[in-house]
């Protein structure tokens, strides 16, 4: 400890005269930054700038055709699909909060409380996070299938008539949100578990001595301790769900009657099937605006707990 102090004091004096710009060390600093700057420029900053430019142009895979002002935006807002797609997004988000947001909290609480098999259950719920999303979806598509789908077979055993899970506009979105929960809950469980393990056990001990019931202990001690994490995970969930693409792309292709179509799926179709990059970029800008708000909220919440996932 004494040595540390000495060295710190020593270097403090030494660093004082180094206030002037040292060009040699600046060269090294930028040498280290160089790959990141080049790649971020090429892959992120320049494309973000381009998206905004494209949204005012007529442009396709073969190149620039001309400036069109706000035409792309007019077409986007004039198309009823725009409102359908954003309403779908809102429904996805609300459904996923209703179905999916509580599940990880409850699972984490139970896994943490188990005296045995806790590690086993933890690994198990994390499993779907590890497998490629597409592979999981291919299997789920067959579970939901109208012909020989095993879910209908299972429900028949308890007397429920077969349903067209992914072909019925009323059922398709909830069916997809169930899969999203299956795919994503495990990762969130791990994040809550690490939060639960940080809670000082003395608090529970004291509460128990004071006669607090188990439910009260969870309500007054456990949940407040992980509430910051819950907030962050909710915002993250909204950001992820609003970007949903793979699920409707593989399971329904946006159908039936556009009831599962998401903004990203619309961007994909406009760009790569209709070859209209200008209109797709106008769509992208609308996404950029909506998601940036939530991302800024996430970074703001994150700032209070730096360094955490």
């Amino acid at each position: 400890m004494e040595l540390t102090k000495t060295i710190t004091a020593f270097t403090k004096i030494e660093t004082k005269p180094r206030q002037r710009i040292n060009w040699k060390s600046q060269r090294l600093a930028y040498l280290f930054l160089f790959p990141a700057l080049i790649l971020f420029g090429l892959i992120c900053w320049y494309p973000i700038f381009q998206t905004i430019m494209y949204s005012f142009q007529e442009v396709n895979l073969s190149g620039f055709k001309g400036w069109v002002g706000f035409d792309n935006y007019r077409r986007m807002f004039g198309n009823p699909i725009f409102y359908i797609v954003w309403r779908n997004t809102l429904t996805y988000v609300l459904l996923s909060i209703a179905i999916g947001s509580m599940v990880p909290i409850v699972l984490a609480l139970m896994i943490n409380e188990m005296r045995r098999l806790s590690a086993f259950f933890q690994t198990l719920v994390y499993l779907p996070v590890l497998i490629p999303v597409v592979v999981g979806l291919i299997v789920w598509r067959q579970i939901y299938a109208p012909e020989g789908g095993i879910l209908n077979g299972l429900l028949q055993l308890v007397g429920i008539p077969p349903q067209l899970w992914l072909q019925n506009p009323a059922l398709a979105k909830p069916a997809i949100v169930v899969i999203m929960t299956w795919l994503g809950a495990g990762g969130t469980v791990l994040i809550y578990l690490s939060g639960l393990r940080e809670i000082p056990l003395e608090l529970y001990e004291a509460a128990e001595l004071d006669g607090f019931s188990v439910l009260k202990r969870i309500w007054f001690i456990t949940l407040p301790h992980i509430s910051a994490r819950i907030k962050i995970m909710l915002v993250l969930q909204i950001i992820f769900v609003a970007q949903v693409f793979t699920e409707p792309f593989i399971l329904t292709a946006g159908g039936p009657a556009n009831s599962t179509r998401s903004p990203v799926l619309e961007i994909y179709d406009t760009a790569f099937n209709q070859n209209n990059f200008g209109l797709a970029s106008a769509w992208s800008v609308s996404m950029l605006v909506v998601l940036s708000i939530f991302s800024i909220l996430y970074i703001f919440l994150q700032k209070k707990r730096p360094g955490e996932v």
Partner: peptide, 26 residues
């Protein structure tokens, strides 16, 4: 400035600039 620019790419979803990124790659 560099830190801020890197933080911005975290706030902007990659999906929103997929199209120009694809054109750059081609």
């Amino acid at each position: 400035v560099i830190r801020a620019l890197i933080l911005i790419t975290m706030a902007v979803p990659g999906i929103a600039y997929l199209v120009p990124r694809y054109i750059i790659m081609t």
